[in-house]
Design a binder for these strands. Structure first.
Lengths: 354, 354
DNA sequence: TTGAAAGCGCTAACAT
DNA sequence: ATGTTAGCGCTTTCAA
């Protein structure tokens, strides 16, 4: 039996590392490692009989090629990196998910790096991740424009999300937050609200900047509407803690930075016995999965987040394959999602405080 | 000037790959690559002056060691892998986050693999991820016990979450879901409920099995209480779609598989005009961040999920460093978190519909 | 069709 | 203290 023959000829001593490598298979099959490599890679120039022998040996030894050796030889890792400011944020989770899913379909894996909102760490994290991978997705980086421009060249292939750069060959996927808030504000005004308040996001967030720009444009278009600015953040607690400021403002329509903030705010208003939307209308942003299940269901601007992650991979794949890309990046228009948290304005409120 | 000297001597032609490697730095600094390697690794046996020269050359060329070459030479990647059944699940997101954070603190990165609840893919994904990494965290795998036992040996160093194995040296972090549901059921019974229903999770989920076992124990302890079983799943929609079944059951206390299902159910009940907890009490499981912000706030069993991810890394680090580990794995007791979604039972309901 | 040998970029043992 | 050399595990020319 062939089996006996090859087994006898080598009691298969494992290599220095103790792992089964291509060398062990080669010995067992009685061929050179070059041939084993050919077989493992489906090179058809190998004699079928020998190929079968190699495959048998590989199977018996449970051999699996070492990806690190492969990566070094091929100059690619079949892995892409993603840097996010905060993995706790549902938006970035969704992007990661969409990216991971799409990349997996093409045989790529995803390495994650969370900067925990420490913008000074982003550049280092990005560089490290990039070196281990074939490409990098930089997600809503908090760093300055100057710093971004500086590191971008060393990160190629690079796909940006919610930031742009002057560098060529860097696709950028951005959500039109400016248009989104304008749509939401317009919706509230249509309902009769004349005194709005924007519960802002993190100061360093570019997407917050876009919202602010959008609101400036809105104010210019609607001089009769008041739009107040309230300090905020990006999470539940921010919204919850903003209840006093919101009530003090006398606004009847509140544009929360995102759905999380809106949910926290609604929860706080509920505790105070303030009716939403009876007394105050609240809107969010993003349309995270939870948004439709809040009480009342949240009016928001839906961002196709998972699709964004998937698009990031499409762009990345094009870069890696050096394909022509006529549409390097794209702009996503949020879709107004009107639910129960927004309603007709009551008589204008005056500034009173619990 | 030293600077001029070294610059002149090599117009630094890049290596075959076009990237700056250790060789380029060596040439520019006028030393061997071994010396460059020593300097880059902080080996103090290098003459300070030469070290400075090397550092200058490295800085000027913006040299960064190639991690792949390093990994091959050192036999380690400073990366760990994690396999999750569904990246959309907040529980796994939180574990990932805790793991990533803890690992990052020790200089390790995380590679993710999402099996999208396709249990037949798990083994392959796990193997592939493991080969690229120094260790693997296998998170709530859906595969059978037999399959798990079979692949476990090839995955070491391995940390299991919510599954156990007979193999040695495989720490296992499990949440005591059985005790958790018993606590929740006990809480409802204390409130006067005598007819409960369990909205089950995915059939293949081991944690669902633990809940079922817990409920069996509960039934044995409380023969006067009825505990019905309803088919379910693990997401919002499952809960939302279960409204009819829940109403038909006549149960006044509903134990949802997890918080997501509970939220979906509450949303559905709200739409039907059923008051929670006035008419029906609802409990969740996990205490995801959103749970305290639902209306009414959700009674649930809190699982320290992020801590679980962190612990997974502690265990992994111990394995990688081959430290003695007297407590290989641990068991987490959920903490009853009583909020507003559970309340006193009304008069027992009878099965009515629409 | 197959094997020998070079090379991917790095570290480390060995020699000087 | 530094350079030379071997090797990590693989792919891929180049010869035969």
């Amino acid at each position: 039996m062939a089996r006996g023959t090859y087994e006898r000829q080598a009691m298969v001593r494992r290599s220095a590392t103790g792992r089964i490598g291509i060398a062990e298979v080669a010995v067992k099959a009685g061929v050179s490692h070059a041939t084993v490599s050919r077989v493992m890679n489906g090179n058809f120039t190998v004699d079928p009989e020998i190929a079968a022998r190699v495959r048998a040996a590989a199977a018996e030894l449970k051999y699996q090629p070492n990806p690190v050796g492969r990566s070094l030889a091929l100059g690619k890792t079949d892995t892409i990196g993603i840097v996010v400011p905060d993995l706790a944020n549902p938006t970035f989770q969704a992007i990661l998910r969409g990216l991971s899913r799409a990349a997996a379909q093409d045989g790529y894996r995803v390495l994650i790096a969370d900067s925990f909102e420490v913008s000074s760490e982003e550049a280092i994290l990005a560089g490290e991740a990039r070196r281990r991978c074939d490409g990098l997705v930089l997600c809503a980086p908090r760093m300055s424009d100057a710093e971004l421009e500086e590191i971008v060249p060393s990160l190629h292939p690079l796909v940006l999300i919610n930031r742009t750069t002057t560098a060529a060959d860097v696709p950028s996927l951005v959500v039109d937050y400016g248009q989104g808030v304008q749509d939401l504000a317009g919706h509230l005004v249509d309902l009769g609200h004349t005194r709005l308040a924007f519960l802002a996001g993190p100061p360093r967030s570019a997407s917050n900047g876009l919202r602010l720009q959008g609101l400036e444009a809105f104010k210019a278009d609607h001089p009769q509407v008041e739009v107040l600015m309230l300090e905020g953040g990006s999470d539940f607690d921010t919204g919850h803690e903003a209840v006093d400021a919101v009530l003090d403002s006398g606004a009847t329509g509140i544009l929360a930075f995102n759905d999380l903030v809106a949910m926290g705010l609604m929860s706080g208003l509920h505790e105070r016995g303030v009716d939403v939307p009876g007394d105050i209308s609240v809107t969010g942003f993003d349309d995270i999965p939870f948004a439709r299940y809040t009480t009342p269901a949240l009016t928001t601007a839906a961002v196709p987040i998972t699709e964004l992650g998937q698009q990031a991979w499409e762009q990345m794949r094009a870069l890696i394959r050096k394909e022509e890309n006529d549409a390097p990046g794209s702009r996503y228009q949020p879709r107004l999602e009107i639910r129960a948290s927004s309603g007709p304005a009551k008589a204008p409120r005056t500034a009173t405080h619990g």
